[in-house]
Structures are given as C-alpha cells and as structure tokens.
C-alpha cells in the first residue's frame, strides 16, 4: 500500500475571474520531499500554494492535504507557513519569542503555554540560531533574521509540511545562503518542504524537485534535469507571448 501524499492536486483549475490562473494541474508531493515551484510573475505560483493549503477552493478538480480535502483540513499542527516579508513590516511591538510562540497555538488552543511548550519554543529558537534575539522586537531584525524566526515558528509547531512563499525576497545574498542551509538541514531531517521561489539559482542548488509553472505545468522533475531542459524558456516565453 502506498503512503498518502502530503499534497495532492488532481486536475485543479482555478481563476479569480473567468480566466483561469491555474489550469488542469495535477501534482503530488510525498512525505519528505524537498520541492520548489518556480515560474514568472503572475504564473499562478502563490495561487497554487493557496489551493494546496486549502486557503482557496478549486473551481475544478480536487485538492487534498494529508489525504483530506484541503479546504476543510483543520489540523493546523501539521502545517508551517512562511510568507514573503512575513507581515513584519508592521510597526507592531512583538518579540521574536512571541512570534515563535504562535507555532504552539494550534496545539494549545484556548489555553496558555505549558512549561513543555515553552521548552519547545526555546529549542526552536536555538535550532535556527536565534536564541540571542528572543527578546528583540521582530521589526528590529534584518530580513534574513526575520525569516529564520518564522522558520522557528513552524518548528515550534512541529509541522510536517513547511510551505514557504518567496521567503528570500528582500533578503541579502549571505543571509539567503544560510537560510537555504537551514532548509537543507530540515529537509534532511524529514520535513516535507514546498517552496515558492523566484531565485532560480538558489532553487536548483538546493531542492530535489522543481515544478515550473505558468498557468499549467511546464516541467516537473529533478533539479538537475530542469537546468538542462528548455522548460524555463518555454514558461517565461509564454509570458511575453501573452
């Protein structure tokens, strides 16, 4: 018996208007995979992520998460999410530890955090190398440090699937490198990673599988093969034609 895929999109079509942004896409991501979705601006990458996470419902086809319909999936403990810029541009007074603490909220519900929960939070901070920043305001951090804090939040939540939506936008090159080292380590430890990324060199150097998208799938396979294929030209070429 085969294992249930973590993400299972089957014939998914979706559009915010009559024109579909995503058309007839079928992708499965299995447990432990390290996959990246790449494509030009407006290719439907973020929409695909929202469909996979159940934040949007497909117009056609089905989206499943851990075997359950994604739209009604409510086991937030299994998911970790890191957004582009991660909303931290707000001038909100909140410390790094308070942000990482949120990873425990799906576990504790309406209760406060127990000693064990706090230990998990502190361990997550330690793992991403951010313990020294725990009591800093998140707005005082650099882009790279901030994204580490958001990874720590997902680790504190003990997520099985980590979804990152262009996490390195606005992050300096050195921090991007160490950010990817962190993702590599998490992948080696068995966490399933689905990455939406515009930085193609970072993607091909690190991930195992590349899904190249522009409304439909132009390429889906190992990163090495992607570099040699003409999928990129075709996908990006489709934009200029449109």
């Amino acid at each position: 018996m085969t294992e249930t895929p973590v993400v299972d999109l089957d014939g998914v079509t979706f559009g915010y208007t009559q024109t579909p942004v995503i058309e007839d896409i079928s992708i499965t991501v299995d447990a432990g995979e390290y996959a990246a979705v790449v494509g030009p601006n407006g290719s439907g990458k973020s929409t695909l992520m929202k469909l996979a996470l159940g934040l949007l419902s497909p117009d056609d086809g089905s989206a499943r998460l851990f075997g359950d319909p994604a739209a009604s999936f409510d086991d937030g403990q299994r998911l970790g999410y890191v957004a582009q810029h991660a909303s931290a541009t707000k001038a909100m007074p909140i410390t790094v530890r308070e942000v990482v603490k949120m990873g425990r909220f799906p576990h504790v519900g309406f209760s406060g955090l127990s000693t064990t929960d706090w230990e998990i939070v502190d361990r997550a901070l330690e793992r991403v190398g951010m313990s020294a920043f725990a009591d800093r305001r998140i707005t005082q951090l650099s882009g790279g440090q901030r994204q580490r804090a958001f990874i720590a939040r997902a680790l504190a939540g003990e997520a099985e699937l980590l979804v990152l939506d262009e996490p390195t936008v606005g992050v300096d090159a050195e921090s991007v490198a160490s950010f990817y080292d962190l993702l590599d380590l998490l992948s080696a430890e068995g966490i399933t990673i689905l990455l939406i990324e515009h930085d193609l060199s970072a993607v091909t150097d690190h991930v195992d599988r590349v899904i190249c998208l522009n409304r439909t799938v132009y390429f889906d396979g190992p990163a090495e093969t992607f570099v040699q294929s003409d999928a990129l030209d075709r996908a990006f070429g489709a934009v200029s034609v449109k």
């Binding site: 086991d75 403990q77 999410y81 949120m102």
Partner: peptide, 8 residues
C-alpha cells in the same frame, strides 16, 4: 494567512 493555515 499563517493563522488561517494554522486552522483558525
């Protein structure tokens, strides 16, 4: 968005 992903 993260709150929605977390199931809230």
């Amino acid at each position: 968005t993260a709150a929605a992903v977390a199931g809230f």
